[in-house]
Design a binder for these strands. Sequence first.
DNA 1: CCGCTAGATGGCAGTGCATGCCATCTTGAC
DNA 2: GTCAAGATGGCATGCACTGCCATCTAGCGG
Lengths: 200, 200
Amino acid sequence: MALTLRQRNRLAAMHHIIETAIDLFDEHGYTAVTVEQVAAAAGVSPRTFYRYFGTKEGLFTTDTHAAIGQDLLAEQLDLDDLPGTLERIVASVHTAAAPSGGAALYTPWSGVRYVLEEPAVREAVYTALDDLSERLTAALRSTGADPTRARVAVRSYLFGVYFGALEQWHLDGRVRPLLDYVKEGSAVLAGPSGPSGSSG
Amino acid sequence: MALTLRQRNRLAAMHHIIETAIDLFDEHGYTAVTVEQVAAAAGVSPRTFYRYFGTKEGLFTTDTHAAIGQDLLAEQLDLDDLPGTLERIVASVHTAAAPSGGAALYTPWSGVRYVLEEPAVREAVYTALDDLSERLTAALRSTGADPTRARVAVRSYLFGVYFGALEQWHLDGRVRPLLDYVKEGSAVLAGPSGPSGSSG
DNA sequence: CCGCTAGATGGCAGTGCATGCCATCTTGAC
DNA sequence: GTCAAGATGGCATGCACTGCCATCTAGCGG
């Protein structure tokens, strides 16, 4: 591992705070639980909480394994095939969340409910998607793509296909695989008749 | 007019507060100006400011002519032709903002800079788009459209085409008409080859 | 084993956003 | 003129978040 002891302790503490916070949220509701209460329950000071996550919503938007996440994205990214990239990443995260052999390092689905149902968290996630959009748009433009086309395509896949599929998957009770929704969403944009709603 | 005296006074006061606020923002910056300062400069109490706009960012997301806005949307809305709907609304707002004969009731472009450049405002606008997405998705579903297809299509047009076009238009210095960007954005989604970035 | 340096943490005070409550004032109907 | 309803202001409060400084700990060299 390329992480020092301090870095590993930090990540462990962050995961502990996240799990403690979600337990409190499940019991009392997101808005009713204060950052001070989360920090106290997790055994850290509020000041440290803010140093870790920046904001209360940062619990859901901070990439707690930034190194891994960056590697995964860089590894799967294909700017000429955005739907394929999205599907591969969703597939990777999904298998990682349901491990068959090793221990799950991190279960990213425990907080999805708050991402979709809590307005403040949802808002923060939009900002995170916004940041990612900007980076991907810049990357796509560096390959020679038209600025407007690049911007619209990236944003449509992230805010439209990805977030839309995630929400519909959640609303439907998480029965069918998320990947099915992502594929159907990609088909909406790539379909020969365009994304007009008249073909439902 | 269908508005009572109280309603007209309220709208006039809101417009006055908005203009006062933007003047202060232009001079000192958005974050450096407090709600208390805006309220004092506009001659109202902070409590009234919050009753009008809900939040500081509500200055940019509150529809100050809700009745007119709703009429416009309902009038132009065609669920079978989302790109056409978007283009007609953009065209309407643009002509309203550059009046040739009568006086401009409202200039919606004075605050666009903050919508795109100020993170807190941008975030709030995302939530406003999110609300609109939900309403349009519900309307589209009521026509028999597939849930996932409806959700992805609406969100792609609002977050991808509309917001993306607005941002690129702003980044390019607002030289070409916004409508051009919207049309190009719509073409990205409706194009025969799909929204992949390889055709730039 | 002992200090030293740098980074991490905690405590504290302060600011600003936002809301609830109640008193006061204005509007508009009778 | 009277009265109810609505709009406004002032006050108190809670919570998110930040800057500042003191303290503690990890990790390294002697």
